[in-house]
């Protein structure tokens, strides 16, 4: 019936029950998927600022470890997939430490004892400390960005943006619909690449030939992409997208204790990092007295 026509609904998203049926696949299994995506994002941003501003490598290092620990505990990933990634990240950070220590200007290490000697190469403790600081910052910011999105589905983020942050749903939805373009474009690009190879238009080596190839692919890819976008937009309009200033939300974000608990935990971690992080981590960090 048409009794449910718009017009009488109160302001704000139309209420609806949380519907488990037909929910998109959840990201991970742990508690992080229950935390509001915007809360996760906000906490990560604050922690990133702290990690960036701290002058002591112990602070970003502590935040890095905390972020990794929360991420693992909050999404319970398969060990077979998590362990290699962790090992790779650890090696990379060690390399960064040495690299940035070598790149540090001479004044940074001046007056500090030599911490490492390898043939003609001498690393002063000051330089090593600088390298550790930069590497820890990079690592902390990377880990916190990953943590910001951990356990968040695109749908969850969209709902949070619309219902909590009052972002216009047209914007939030259009961004999500854009995700659907990715596989379409990928298939299209694959076809075009094959067709161009068949025409013998993929010859040559080096960056110049690669640029030419890319330019040639751009025209059909753009032509197809624009057509596809037009069709999608018409199909969305035909189903009433944008007809009203708001739309029904079937999955209202529920306010649970997870959000305040996550914030409190984050505060505790930040406090620990800035106060006792140095004491806790200085024995294991290079170049830190």
């Amino acid at each position: 019936m048409t009794t449910d026509r718009p017009g009488s609904a109160p302001h704000g998203p139309a209420p609806g029950p949380h519907s488990p049926a037909g929910d998109p696949p959840q990201a991970g299994r742990g508690f992080l998927r229950r935390v509001d995506p915007l809360v996760k994002l906000g906490v990560s941003l604050v922690a990133m600022a702290v990690a960036y501003l701290a002058g002591d490598p112990a602070v970003p290092a502590f935040l890095l470890l905390a972020a990794v620990a929360v991420h693992l505990a909050g999404t319970l990933p398969h060990p077979g997939r998590a362990l290699p990634a962790l090992a790779a990240a650890g090696l990379l950070l060690c390399w960064f430490t040495v690299l940035f220590a070598l790149l540090a200007s001479a004044d940074v290490g001046a007056g500090t004892p030599i911490a490492l000697s390898w043939g003609p190469l001498h690393l002063h403790a000051g330089a090593l400390r600088y390298g550790a600081l930069v590497a820890a910052r990079i690592g902390a910011i990377a880990a916190l960005s990953l943590l910001a999105g951990a356990g968040t589905t695109p749908e969850g983020l969209r709902t949070a943006l619309v219902c909590r942050a009052r972002v216009p749903y047209r914007f939030a939805h259009a961004a999500l619909a854009g995700l659907q373009f990715v596989p379409v474009f990928r298939a299209e690009a694959d076809h075009i690449r094959a067709a161009h190879r068949m025409r013998g238009a993929d010859g040559g080596r080096g960056p110049l030939a690669a640029a030419r190839r890319a330019a040639r692919m751009l025209v059909p890819l753009l032509a197809g992409g624009i057509r596809h976008a037009e069709r999608v937009s018409l199909a969305m309009d035909a189903r009433g997208f944008g007809a009203h200033p708001r739309r029904t939300e079937r999955r209202l974000p529920r306010r649970t204790l997870a959000d305040p608990a996550y914030c409190l935990g984050a505060l505790a971690v930040l406090a620990t990092a800035t106060t006792t992080g140095h004491a806790l981590l200085s024995p294991v960090l290079p170049g830190v007295p």
Binding site: D4, R5, P6, A9, A14, P15, G16, P17, S19, A21, R239, G240, F241, G242, A243, H244, R246, R247, T248, E249, R250
Partner: peptide
């Protein structure tokens, strides 16, 4: 579609 036309959530499903 029904969400866009503000059909109540239970009715939508």
């Amino acid at each position: 579609g029904p969400e866009n036309t503000l059909v109540p959530a239970a009715e939508v499903e």
